[in-house]
Amino acid sequence: MATTSSAEPKTNRIGLTVIDYKGGRTTLCAGCGHNAISERIIDAMYEMGVQPERVAKLSGIGCSSKSPAYFMSRSHSFNAVHGRMPSVATGAVLANHNLIALGVSGDGDTASIGIGQFVHLMRRNLPLIYIIEDNGVYGLTKGQFSATADIGSKLKTGVINDLPPIDTCALAIQLGASFVGRSFSGDKRQLLAMLKAAIAHRGTVMLDVISPCVTFNDHEGSTKSYKYMKDHDEPLQEISFIPSFEEIDVDYDPGTTVDVTMHDGSHLRLRKLDVDYDPTNKLRAIATLTEAHHEGETLTGVFYIDPNKPTFMDLLHVTDEPLATLPADAVRPPKAVLDEVMESLR
């Protein structure tokens, strides 16, 4: 996109430059997958023309959860407590459902200490983008295994993991998230398309992004290293995304491509690669994930999507205006109501 040499900086559809989506300088290790994810988030938000002030960034604790400081400084951000980002995010969305809530978590923050809040968040299909920056280890405490580490994967210290991993994607699909996928921080194209579709989606988007830890889990014997992903990343589909504000200028072949019309009129196009895959079939999605796991492949792509499932906010049926800023006369019933209640208690 930055190939133009004109003096005027390139702007998006709301007149902002990509600089307007930048964050602070990263303090993560050079080469950390999380930095690449931050970059893709910036690109996706910029290309989708999202007003940064409408975005609320939420995170828990860990390397991943630090990363919201490194993108979109014009968005409010809340770095909460370990494993509890889902509840904070839920509260924020309850208060103001016009926010675009972007949660960033890690595999430890999600699959261990935060698994309770994670599963209940998925159940509710709250409008929220939930990204797991998944490297299989606790980086900030120097490289202990997390609950997404595969059986048999090896720490730098030689310790072998002998417990099965939690597949956050399978869990999210089973529990009710309406858009679930996996990507790899090193796959710019796939991750960007998925993030843009995530922004267009209404409901819980759960993206597990394999994001190698260059310091503690990028060695021989790791199943979350750059090399391992290069050898075992098995994309389900070739993903393209056409936002609602762009003309559709490419036809697709219904025999090879699934076209998903998103809630806002955008199109998510999934061109099938090896297998014939239907991303609207929950059972098939979980079976496919299980099979890939048995074969030692890391499947990536959009596993499941239901663009029209009612969200938690639909069920709550709240006012169109944010609850947070309703005027006093909308939230304090008149004196006649108190009189009526008092009369009933006499």
Binding site: A80, P86, S87, V88, T90, A92, V93, Q117, P322
Partner: peptide, 22 residues
Amino acid sequence: VQAEDELAAIGMVIGAGWAGAR
């Protein structure tokens, strides 16, 4: 919202308070 536990209950309150709700 009936939360999954008291951790989540107060977490939601904190999130909502941050975003401006009572």
